[in-house]
Design a protein around this nucleic acid. Structure first.
Lengths: 219, 219
DNA sequence: GTCGTATATTACCCGTGGGTAAGTAGCGTC
DNA sequence: GACGCTACTTACCCACGGGTAATATACGAC
């Protein structure tokens, strides 16, 4: 799937053009609306209007509204999977990898497709689609658990309940998608760095360093 | 609002009975269905069926489906507010209070009305209702920030970004509502204790104690 | 240029489910 | 034991919006 042009609707400027580009434009627009208004309150007419086309044209690229929703989820997971591969290759001890994962995951949660994974109601997916999504989600969770386990093994991480710790880390990170607003406050990267440091301070087996100066204490 | 009888539908066994009891029965049933099937996929007929009444009877107690949703949110927040009051009274330093808040909040997230706060789409609320809910949510967030600030002040908590830390704590806790299943794994109280200890390990200014034995390492 | 195809449009259908109007029946009251 | 109020039921409405059938048109090919 190719990258979008300047704005999603320009993908529909001309008639013959890359299908993938148009699919992507639909998903970008839909994701934005789903996040703003909610899935149900977003009508397909709304999506089409933004793209300067009409509703039935959407059915050239997606077979239903649910299918568009699934598309958003899949792109969100693609973002994560890309990071996972990099981190796996980079190597390092459990704690190092966990921190890298936190940083990357935080980045995903500040992007629309990443937000879709958390903020859109999974009940709207078809049972088959839901199974797909659940499986991909589970594989991410397993990665958290794997790095925690590795860190306990290599003694970079304190002995902790791997399952529960993975849950709370995921929660802290997923929640970013609910409060992050692009252009306000910290950037995506700054949040990632802060989380990577601070979520692991209590997990690290090495003595705790004093909190980093820099961006602190908005008391 | 009074406590429910054995099962929600028994509130409708007889005709004349406490209105509050029936309202509560409706909300209990609706919350359960909303959480299982999602708000939109739950029809008012479904709710009525479970209570052995018919849909229009619901309109004796609520003026719309949205109003039922709002009711669920309000009861969820009532659970939190009850804990907040207790913690405030109990006193203690910032860290102690923060831990108590974490424990209590975790407990709320394992209950249906607490789960509603996180898992049901707020877009379905009317603008006015949404404003109400947002305000209550904000007041909880302020409590997290207040205890963090207090802890920094009284030196029980490391200097940290209060706003970001409150966010990640809230996220870790809110996420419980997405994975907790009553009767599987740890109990609500055990989760609360674990979270109160482990989420604050990296925040505590006192040296980090080795992780508590007891319930550990499902590696 | 004209033909064929993919793409988009116009016009429409219709299932669904929230909500309501009118009528019925249980229960307390006197 | 008749009355009246409230709770509840039956029967219905209808707006909404996802989805489709039939039709028009831009673009590439030759």
């Amino acid at each position: 799937m190719k990258k979008e042009p300047l704005s999603p609707q320009s993908a529909f400027d001309t008639r013959h053009r890359d299908r993938d580009q148009k699919r992507f434009a639909v998903l970008t627009t839909a994701a934005e609306l789903f996040l703003t208004k909610g899935y149900h309150l977003t009508r397909l007419d709304d999506v089409a209007d933004r793209l300067h086309i009409t509703k039935p044209a959407l059915y050239n690229y997606f077979c239903s509204k649910h299918d568009i929703l699934l598309g958003c989820h899949m792109l969100g997971h693609d973002l994560i999977d890309a990071s996972l591969a990099e981190i796996e290759e980079a190597g390092g001890d459990g704690l190092t990898r966990l921190r890298a994962l936190i940083r990357a995951y935080a980045g995903v949660m500040t992007q629309p497709f990443g937000m879709c994974l958390i903020r859109l109601d999974e009940h709207e997916l078809s049972p088959k689609a839901l199974a797909q999504v659940r499986q991909r989600r589970q594989s991410v969770n397993e990665r958290f658990e794997a790095y925690l386990a590795q860190g306990i093994e290599d003694e970079s991480i304190y002995l902790c309940d791997v399952r529960l710790t993975a849950f709370w880390l995921a929660g802290a990170l997923n929640w970013i998608s609910r409060w992050y607003k692009a252009g306000h406050g910290m950037s995506s990267g700054e949040i990632g760095d802060y989380f990577a440091d601070n979520l692991t301070r209590g997990l690290s087996r090495a003595g705790i360093e004093p909190a980093r100066e820099g961006r602190l204490a908005a008391v």
